[in-house]
Design a protein around this nucleic acid. Sequence first.
DNA 1: GGCACGAATTTTTTT
DNA 2: AATTCGTGCC
Length: 788
Amino acid sequence: MRFLDELNDNQRKAVEFVDGASLVIAGAGSGKTRVLTYKIAYLLKKGFAPSSILALTFTNKAAREMKSRIADLVGERIARYLWVGTFHSLFSRILRSEAGTIGFTGNFTIYDTADSNSLIKSIIKGLNLDDKIYRPGLVQNRISTAKNNLITPGAYASNEELMTADKHARVPRIQEIYRIYTEKCKQSDAMDFDDLLLQTNILFRDHPEVLQKYRERFNYILVDEYQDTNYAQYLIIRKLSEGHERICVVGDDSQSIYSFRGANIDNILQFKNNYQSAQVFKLERNYRSTKMIVNAANSLIDKNKNRIPKKVYTEKQDGEKIKVLQLYSDFEEATVVSEYVIELKESEEYAYKDIAILYRTNAQSRVLEDQMRKGGVPYRIYGGLSFYQRKEIKDVIAYCRLICNPADEEALKRCINTPTRGIGDTTVNKVLETAALHGVTAWEVMGDILKYNLPVHSGTANKLTDFREMISTFMEQKDVLDAYQLVDSVIKTTGMIRDTYTDNSPESISRRENIEELVNAIREFCEMKTDAGEQALLVDFLAEVSLLTDQDTDKNGDEDKVTLMTVHAAKGLEFKVVFVVGMEEELFPSSFSMDSARELEEERRLFYVAITRAEERCFITYAKSRFRNGELNFVNPSRFIKDIDSKYLDFPVQQTIPSSSNFVDEDEEIENFSGFRNAGTRFTRTSTRTYYPKQQTQEKPVYYDTPNPARKLTRLKNSPATSAINTDLNETFVPTIPVGKFVKHAMFGVGKVLSVSMSGANEKAEIDFGEKGVKTLLLKFAKLEVLD
DNA sequence: GGCACGAATTTTTTT
DNA sequence: AATTCGTGCC
Ligand SMILES: Nc1ncnc2c1ncn2[C@@H]1O[C@H](COP(=O)(O)OP(=O)(O)OP(=O)(O)O)[C@@H](O)[C@H]1O
């Protein structure tokens, strides 16, 4: 087995250990995933049948990569029979074949978060509860957490702790909503994401013979990113491996970042106690990053109290320090990052695809995207609104779902009046109420309007009947035509396509293109399946589509583009160059994590994950002001920057630090454009004028600058970050402009000052610009000139 | 029932 | 800024 040479001693030991449970716990970039991959290859060589190996990854993409890597080692003919995938995708497969035993059909629909949310909303409405108190999002969260901990509605109701918590939170009826939600899902033959895990547990608990069958089928179980598994996942694995304990999990407690999804770090911390035969393997050598990056990351994570200390070292070269850049605004941050990207590309050392820009929240991607486009930088955004979450796509899919499962109420609600065909909310509600009254599906009611006494006029009744007939016709074809042929017919017959031709707005065209892209994707799906000798019916497509994510729609993965994604989405990936942007208090760490030490530590782990994605170069940026929810906020640098030992950081001399004399052009700029001195940042959203510190645009690139030593380091280290930055801002002289006077604005022209008031720490003025309207402007930022 | 406009609201992260 | 919600009118 030559491939074992590609491992170091510790890795090889972990791979070769086959007699019992093993845990590989090690820091980032130490080759944990590699161990798992090679271990599978090793097991295959040792004679394990590929179909007897179950490997769980965190994403579909990771699964694909692992499978293809294994195929490289042992050949595609063998690798193709492996069970490699996410918990959700593999256990949905098992659930489909065993569905009958737990009261579902093999065709069950998978409700995505939007579907659950909509169902919860309608339940809350049905119970006449106030949706301001019973916020659907909150309820959904509670239900999800319950499911992840295997608490069924009954168990929920009899759980003291949960019930009192709900009572105190003034939402005592969550338990009832949960119960109805569960019933509704079952009635609609639907499972949500959490059900895929919960129902698997129920299946294994209530049907020992089924559990036994899968126990015998899977002789070896491997789990990647084990630190982010939840209780439901833990128990599935535990049950399947009971007896033989041939299980190998790998992970890093310092990279546990999904607690909001129920991930329980105890799974990995308690592994030794849960498995008698457990052997623990530690890997210490990092193969990914330079010394500077590894050390910086180590010094950061060292600030967490709750963690298993780990040694991590690297033999790679020292590399450069992590560059920390302070910018005026989110806008400038994006501009500067795009300039750095261009520099890196032009240096010919890096391609665009070597570079990633990571952020805490999806909302941050917008400015970045704009600036990348402006700078001509090709990029690809992952996450956020994915292709399959677009309205028009969800609409088409809703038709598909309804055709395959007429009980799918959420799908019905979605497409019954899309495009509009005169069946409005009132009618839909009547149908749903009548259905609930008789304990049948809405589909059933629509099939016999007279029998169920549906209180609608004959015109409306006809519309309902027509709609039902149309869907029925598709149903007759669902086992005859392949997915492509059927969907093609659906978009034409239902009027979905025609609807995009009613006007020629860019929105309509984009909707049409998206629908066409979907149809294309389905065609490719059919071709692929047919080539593989498998069936390619609509149900087959649906079974796969519900679990697809953004990263899976990535067709040409090796296009030369910069990657933009959240830090969460970057877990497990690596890039030569990484920019971690928006390192500010309230954003990263998120304001919601601030009052809990536990959550704060998770935010720190998240930052650790971000930095450890970098192989060679890492940049950290933060802005002093940022638009959030439509308003400008002044923000402070993240406390996490101080958590990194400053000897690994480089704060280049920048013009962007106020109060320093090398503050280029400030006076000139301010006087020319605002009429006020020290008015602060020049960047506003309404301004198209861009301004770069001279050095960055006209001289050599900043990242070759000599590190700026002591002075700024001390500033960041010894004083709270707030004082370094905030003082400057707070001391900014803000003159009050006289009410009633006329002022001139760069964009709006001349206007009259109506009032001046305080908005937080900032003065804002209401100014009437005549036909441009009355605007409310923050004086710190508006470029105003007082006219005499 | 459908549409348009104005008001109100906004927690981060995702399978 | 962006999206959702409510209202009012045809
Ligand atoms: N023995 C080795 N020799 C050479 N390269 C290695 C070796 N082990 C791992 N690598 C490389 O190191 C990098 C990180 O490996 P891998 O992704 O498996 O680490 P990991 O521990 O799973 O990381 P993370 O925890 O960040 O997901 C990969 O590029 C991998 O190819």
